[in-house]
Computed example of a mutant assay.
Amino acid sequence: MTTVTEISEGVENPYALSHLDALESEAVHIFREVAGEFERPVILFSGGKDSIVMLHLALKAFAPAPVPFGLLHVDTGHNFPEVIEFRDRTVARHGLRLHVASVQDYIDDGRLRERPDGTRNPLQTVPLLDAIGEGRYDAVFGGGRRDEEKARAKERVFSLRDEFGAWDPRRQRPELWQLYNGRHAPGEHVRVFPLSNWTELDVWQYIAREGIELPPIYYAHERDVFRRAGMWLTAGAWGGPKDGEPVERRLIRYRTVGDMSCTGAVDSDAATIEQVIAEIAASRLTERGATRADDKLSEAAMEDRKREGYF
């Protein structure tokens, strides 16, 4: 008797999912699971590539209906203009609701104090937690991936946060067989990471496959930058450059985007998606390890912020 194995040997299985299909299916399942379990979810959306991919997946998950969640962005006031323009254009194109929590507002009224180094990324925690409380959000989608950084590598897909937004490793739950437990007490919420199992290369391959538009700074372009701590930073109102940090015109691109004061560029001539994918495939440094100064403030910088409620 002929077996199924014998029939399929040497023949491509027409029902097998590619790795991108499998990742997409998992993320779509997570979005729908949250829609069924929670009352007031929200998607963190900055206009960066991971949040753009996350929104694309959400649109797919609920099509042809609109996305049933609003968007939330904690704006440091030192974001790249190209990214903010893209954020607003994307929100308008899809008819979405966007709430912006402004770090500048907190500095202006004295609730936060400017750091001496000009970096505002660590100042996002309080506005984020206030926005979550005011919006009564019980599930908050984030674009974090486990390959980015060691504190993110041990994170669950459903990450329980207490009433202060803090992460406690002892309270995290097992997630066997893609079964997610969203149970939480009043005042608590859950951070949800649909891209947990994706890599930077996966993200870019998916962007290429789906034809997803990105802000132009992700591709090679000429820009005025200066060198600090081994990274090319953009000059701006946040305080750079200092004396002895000459500004140069270079061909660069950004692998990740955030506050201008701590997001470094890389030398690159990758002007197309195909060239970016080839560049990433050859890289031995993670995007955050290579270009995010805020992760280098201490050995446990991201871990500390995670416990405080930022990530």
Rank of each mutant, 00 (worst) to 15 (best):
F226P: 05
A290M: 07
T234C: 11
P174C: 06
G211L: 08
I132M: 07
E24S: 13
W198G: 01
R171C: 07
T3K: 14
L112T: 12
A265L: 00
E26L: 14
T125Y: 01
H99C: 07
P68R: 04
H29Q: 13
G118C: 09
H99S: 01
I107V: 15
M302I: 14
A235Y: 00
A139W: 06
G244Q: 08
E245P: 08
G133T: 01
L251T: 08
I252A: 02
S8Y: 14
S283V: 07
P215C: 04
G230E: 01
H189P: 05
G289D: 09
G118R: 02
L214Q: 09
L201W: 08
K242V: 06
A237F: 10
G211T: 07
N13S: 15
G239C: 09
Q124N: 14
T3E: 10
G142A: 11
V247S: 06
L160Q: 04
G36V: 12
E299F: 03
G264H: 01
Y137E: 10
A271I: 06
H19Y: 11
S18H: 11
H189L: 12
D294W: 02
S196R: 14
E163L: 11
V266Y: 03
R288G: 02
L72F: 06
D109T: 15
R115C: 11
V42L: 10
T76W: 02
K306Y: 00
W198Y: 13
F164T: 14
G211Q: 13
K242D: 15
A208V: 02
H184E: 12
C262H: 01
A58P: 01
R249S: 11
E287L: 00
A35T: 10
M260A: 05
A151P: 04
E175F: 08
L195C: 02
I273Y: 07
R97L: 10
C262V: 01
Y206S: 04
R89M: 07
I217W: 03
Y254H: 09
T119I: 15
Y180T: 05
F141K: 06
E200F: 03
E39I: 05
V28A: 04
K49F: 01
P194A: 09
R209L: 13
Q178D: 14
S18E: 03
L251G: 00
W238T: 01
V126Q: 13
L129F: 11
